[in-house]
């Protein structure tokens, strides 16, 4: 991979704290290797800022392998940047050309308040899971039920797994004009509803999780598909249809009680 290094202009959202006003600040970065990841480019910039006596840009990141869901940058109007099915930590500078200007912002959503610069508070997602995103089995001996006692059709298991690969990054919310969390939530509801182990609680689960989502201030879903388009794990929008069905079913039977 022999490409020569490039120069870029970055417009980065800087905001000192949750209560402060933010603004865009322009940075020139030179000598960027196309083999760098986007975050490594930020590392290099931050090193320079520190040496110049400035405050480095705060952003969330940890695994840098596209799996922990920490990283969360809105790049040129698109959560996680230009590459399909890729988190920003896996985006590499090959994606850009010499002379490009890149605008970098935090996730924008009422339910994800900015903490500092590009860092936001996504604890609302944890609270949605608390509302029912689990199977209520106790740990310990599981009453001696062997793991192979209940076979699960491969197709169903695979679909459940595909939904379960959601990394909880919040890009779906950031991409949605209504800031809806439906894709995130539908991934968990689908994962558990598709498996026999999750079936007994499926009604309460979906009702409680939806109620919590509303409480957190996420918007409603108008099925525009912006979420699916930016989801780094390619969580399918059919999960939202499944969630809607689960919700309707649950609503009907619960009303009758």
């Amino acid at each position: 991979m022999d490409h020569s290094n490039i120069s870029l202009t970055l417009e980065v959202w800087r905001q000192e704290s949750a209560s402060a006003n933010g603004k865009f600040v322009t940075y020139k970065v030179d000598d960027v290797s196309p083999e760098m990841s986007f975050l490594e480019m930020f590392d290099v910039l931050n090193e320079r800022l520190i040496r110049e006596g400035q405050d480095p840009i705060a952003f969330d990141h940890d695994c840098r392998e596209g799996i922990c869901g920490s990283c969360s940058m809105h790049i040129n109007g698109r959560p996680h940047g230009p590459w399909h099915a890729t988190t920003v930590c896996q985006l590499h500078m090959r994606a850009f050309k010499n002379g490009d200007t890149i605008v970098v912002e935090p996730w924008r959503a009422k339910s994800f308040p900015v903490i500092k610069d590009l860092m936001v508070d996504r604890s609302a997602f944890d609270r949605i899971i608390q509302a029912g995103g689990y199977v209520s089995v106790n740990t310990g001996n599981v009453n001696g039920v062997d793991a192979n006692a209940i076979p699960v059709e491969k197709d169903k298991a695979d679909t459940a797994f595909a939904a379960a690969t959601c990394i909880g990054c919040g890009a779906c919310v950031a991409a949605c004009k209504n800031s809806s969390a439906m894709l995130f939530m539908s991934a968990k509801v689908s994962h558990l509803a598709l498996l026999p182990q999750g079936a007994p609680e499926r009604k309460d689960r979906v009702l409680n999780m939806v109620a919590q989502m509303d409480k957190e201030g996420f918007g409603s879903c108008t099925f525009t598909g912006a979420c699916e388009a930016v989801c780094p794990k390619e969580i399918s929008i059919t999960n939202i249809s499944r969630l809607n069905k689960e919700y309707l079913n649950a609503g009907m039977t619960v009303d009758k009680r």
């Binding site: 199977v135 039920v145 699960v152 298991a157 498996l195 182990q197």
Partner: peptide, 20 residues
């Protein structure tokens, strides 16, 4: 027991066509 526990929690391990 770990595998029993995880399956009971809904961990979607890879399966064969037999469902096992």
């Amino acid at each position: 027991n770990i595998i029993d526990q995880c399956v009971a929690q809904g961990v979607p391990f890879a399966r064969e066509y037999s469902g096992l």
